[in-house]
Amino acid sequence: MNGRRSPYEIYWEILVYCKSPRSFTAVINRCDLNSKTGQEYLEFLHSKGYLSVMKDGEKSTYVATERAGDYIALFTEIYQKLFDTIPGFRL
C-alpha cells in the first residue's frame, strides 16, 4: 500500500495483517515500510500491548493481541463513517 499514510493508518494495517502470526519481513513488505520505520512501529505496538512476539527458536513472529481488536474496530468504524456522514462526490 503506497502513498502518504498517517501513523494510525499504519498501526491499523499492521494489526489487521498480524491477526495471524507474521514475521518482521512479511510485515514490512506487506505494509510497505522500510526496516527502520517498520521496527519502530512494531516495537511501539508491542510496548502498548497491541502486538505480542512469539519466538520459535531463532524465528520471531508478531501477532495481534485481544486489545488490538478494540483498536481495529474503532478505527474501522471511524473510517467507514467518513463515507456515511460526509456528502460524497458524484458526477
Binding site: 500500500m1 503506497n2 502513498g3 499514510r5 491499523w12 494495517e13 489487521v16 467507514q80 467518513l82
Partner: peptide, 18 residues
C-alpha cells in the same frame, strides 16, 4: 468484509494526500 473496505478507504485517503 469491513476490513477490506476500510483498507480501500485508507488507500484512497493516502492517494488524496499524495
Amino acid at each position: 468484509p469491513g476490513e477490506i473496505l476500510t483498507g480501500w478507504i485508507v488507500r484512497l485517503m493516502a492517494h488524496y494526500r499524495e
